[in-house]
Design a protein around this nucleic acid. Sequence first.
DNA 1: CTGAAAGCGCTTACAG
DNA 2: CTGAAAGCGCTTACAG
Lengths: 337, 337
Amino acid sequence: MTARRAQRPVVRIRDVAQDAGVSPQTVSNVLNDQGRFTEETRARVLASVERTGYRPNRAARQLRTRRSRLIGLHLPAAQLSVSNTFSIAFVREVIEAVRRVDHQLVVLTTPVDSPDLDAELLAPGVDGYVLFNVGLDDPRPRVLVDAGVPYALFGRALDPDIQGWIDIDNAAAMTPLVDHLVERGYRTFGYVTYDDDAYWTQERWEGATARLAHHGLAIDPRWLLRGTEAEIRENVAPVLLGPDRPEAIICESDALAEIVHVMATRQGLLPGRDVAITGFDAVPMRFELEPSLTSVAIPVREVADAVVRQVLDEVDGAAAPTAGTFLPTRLAVGGST
Amino acid sequence: MTARRAQRPVVRIRDVAQDAGVSPQTVSNVLNDQGRFTEETRARVLASVERTGYRPNRAARQLRTRRSRLIGLHLPAAQLSVSNTFSIAFVREVIEAVRRVDHQLVVLTTPVDSPDLDAELLAPGVDGYVLFNVGLDDPRPRVLVDAGVPYALFGRALDPDIQGWIDIDNAAAMTPLVDHLVERGYRTFGYVTYDDDAYWTQERWEGATARLAHHGLAIDPRWLLRGTEAEIRENVAPVLLGPDRPEAIICESDALAEIVHVMATRQGLLPGRDVAITGFDAVPMRFELEPSLTSVAIPVREVADAVVRQVLDEVDGAAAPTAGTFLPTRLAVGGST
DNA sequence: CTGAAAGCGCTTACAG
DNA sequence: CTGAAAGCGCTTACAG
């Protein structure tokens, strides 16, 4: 226990000042790069910081500057599961993005429909929030707007007050995907999608069908498969992988495409040769599929960086120059088409 | 932007005091449940808190009490991936456990082998740390011990200074599993394991073989498969699922058991009828296996609660009553045996 | 049971 | 370029 209770004496800024023979104020200036000191002073101060092992007290700094250097990430527990491939990739990038701007990430997990959502979101005193998986009528941005807490979100909102969003253009993203399929010679199409009311579900469907129409093509209604993952898992073989099947199957997400891919393989069909399969997201999966999946890559890292930067701009009161920003997607061609 | 910049005036404790007609001190006492007030005062104060929308300034409280109410979770980025089924389940439970004790969770992702590990771990000013995936010679506990920062860990360490660990007894956990297999009549065994030097890898192997020996049984060396997930994926069929195969395959983890299960199914073998398969961890997977996997359940929630409680006890200076604690595992019998 | 004073460790004006 | 003073908003002794 001895080592455990080390309790080494706390070094304060005035100890460093004393050691360096300057005032606390000067130490503060050096540490916060405020200018107003000679290079020689700077060196002396830094040497003293090193020697004394000084580490600024965050609470004191926070009290004075009114900045916690904490960014909140709202991550309802349900989204932190191995089934949420995209969420996990996104969370990881947000953590890294926050680290790059020298802040700390605080994770909140209150369910979106909790009656305490407001209180819990406001309690931790973070400088701002990152939200994602935000639907058009999500209650969270409103809570933060009303409380005057800065935030940025990956997604979009209906309310024009809700600004500072970062998103991808789901419909537009389907254009190069469909063009690619048409170019490869595929002419009959199936579509696999979640049966939810998310706007991205809607937009991907509309983007795909519109672009197919542009080519004079369409998705045959009998090859449209909607449902939960479990339902799709069950129905994909009979509906889409029998002898009378489409040449290509467009899936709303990689998670769904993975199911189709696995089931196709199990039926003895080789994706890319016997049937084309496409996904959407292009994030790492539990096992890489073979042949690899053609998909639409969401620039997760860029989104995370943009969202975090947006929060900080808002915190700093830098005029938010945009209501929202679309980031470009990229077609990732694999062996499955 | 108007709504966005709401900037409502900050309510301080003295505003509440004024509203309630008491001193700031009394408001503080009520809010922190320090006794020393009448029930009537209490009600008046709480009403004023409600009316004014007061929310304590965390920085000020932290500066005064020297508690941030922040608990750090060190989660190197590599562990936050869909392949790390167990890590994801554990992180989720830690977040919830921290929330239950009314603290906030800060996530740090510095790689374990980073030269800045010390500095980054100490920078955020958390009250204490939760560590997991800790190996016997892990550098992290030492860093925290030396800095006098409280922590608790899921895992174990060699250094006797490193106390406050919570773990399961991997070897003991294998006893009921092996007994179950023997009881079901299985007499020939294969074993699938990672090729790493983690102590749990070692302990599970020893636990299984020792208990088999107790029954006068053993794992045939030609049915021992060691390697990375990719290697196991490739070799499991030829080594363990051919005509000359063991009756039962014990796997070090659910992740490996999943591979074996999928491959067995692909070979036309029905787990539980044609070959028995067991895992270890019993956390949710991307897709539930069918038949379900017999496995050893790690009490993830209990572990998370215990680790968080241990950190707080340490923070509060409550004597750490134990060097370490083993939590019990439970055999979860599924259809795969 | 309640109040006035002091102080946690910084940084932000303000003087020199 | 550097220093002495004030104050951020709480809570912790200390008096009454």
